[in-house]
Simulated scan of single mutants.
Amino acid sequence: MDQADSLRNKMALQLSDQKKHTSGNARVIAVASGKGGAGKSNFTVNFSLALQRLGKKVLVFDLDIGMANIDILLGQSAEYTIVDMLRQRLSVWKIIAKGHEGLPFVSGGSGLNDLIEFSGDEMEYFLEQLQLIGKEYDYIFFDMPAGVSRTSLHFLLSADQAFLVTTPEPTSVTDGYGMIKFLHVNNKNLPVCLIINRIKNKKEGSATASNISAVCRQFLNKEIKSLIYIPDDDTVGKAVRAQTPFIAYSPDARSSAAVLQAARQYTNELNSQEKYTEFSFTAKLRRFFTTKGRNTFG
């Protein structure tokens, strides 16, 4: 850690000590899917970039550690990863890289040697570092691994909101509902928002969202909102191969227009709501990693 990082950390810690139960103003959003291949990471990158274009400060954390691909989608190679931060006790400022259009992101690494499950000490250090940047951003996105592990569950349950990415395919819908049910059982108050990806037309997207919402309402007594239906067009695949976000690769494509419109809608809706203030993300996550704090979200 260089002198500038050390000074910045000390100043940020002094501010955080004044309000120990807040991690800043950033809204923390965990992006999940019931199964792999739903397009979760691609959505995260493009939606984050769309928010940045609206003047929002956004940071993307790739938490699919060891199997990460945010840096690939952004066409950038990060010098450091989350694993480096934990094992070498690096400053979080040091591991934040810049992707397309300067979008800040933290790589999760891409190799079997990078696979890691947070220990108690590692999580505490991670939370300390996260607290340093809470006031720097409007949104912090956690791109979660597909499915659920002990650590990823805790991240999901501690977030201010979960985005669930699914496709109209029956297996994806079934797995997506399973994820919603699992989250609901553990935290009934967690807001979940649907992203329907790879739709043939708006009717298919609406039908998929309505089916999931109806099942959640009937069996979980939970209201699920939909944020966006993303068309399945050739632009997305071409952009991935070019390692460029599709809203930059082809701004006029239907998929790009959908993401940009969703970003505007999302920010407008949040501006009309009160901010989430009951507990900070770091405070909630820390509760899971203390003996008395486990399984406290009934």
Rank of each mutant, 00 (worst) to 15 (best):
T171H: 05
Q161H: 06
D175G: 04
C193E: 14
H184S: 11
L190D: 08
I196H: 06
V185Y: 14
E169G: 00
I196K: 02
P170C: 02
I196L: 09
P170R: 02
C193K: 13
L164P: 01
I199H: 07
Q161S: 07
I195W: 08
N201K: 12
M179R: 05
I195G: 00
L183E: 05
K200A: 14
N201M: 05
K188S: 14
H184P: 10
L190V: 07
Y177C: 00
N187L: 10
N186F: 11
P168Q: 04
E204Y: 11
L183F: 14
I196G: 05
C193T: 15
N186I: 14
H184L: 09
T171G: 05
I196Y: 08
I196D: 06
N189M: 14
V165H: 01
K203M: 15
N187H: 10
K181F: 12
I180F: 02
G176Q: 00
I195P: 00
K188F: 13
D175C: 06
E204R: 13
P170D: 01
K188M: 10
I180Q: 05
I195Q: 05
G178A: 08
F163L: 04
T167R: 05
G176T: 12
G176Y: 05
C193G: 06
I199E: 13
E204P: 10
P191R: 02
F163T: 08
I180M: 08
L183N: 06
K202Q: 15
V173K: 01
T166G: 03
K200F: 15
K202T: 15
V165W: 11
V192P: 04
T166C: 03
L183C: 08
L194E: 06
D175E: 08
F163V: 07
K188G: 11
G178K: 00
L183T: 02
T174D: 01
C193H: 14
P170F: 01
R198K: 14
P168W: 06
L164N: 01
I199Q: 09
M179W: 08
V185I: 15
P191L: 00
E169M: 02
N201R: 12
Y177K: 02
E169S: 04
K188V: 12
K181V: 10
E204K: 12
N189Q: 14
M179E: 04
P170Y: 01
K200E: 13
F163R: 03
K200M: 11
T167V: 12
P170K: 01
N201W: 09
P170A: 00
T174V: 06
N189W: 13
N186H: 10
N197C: 10
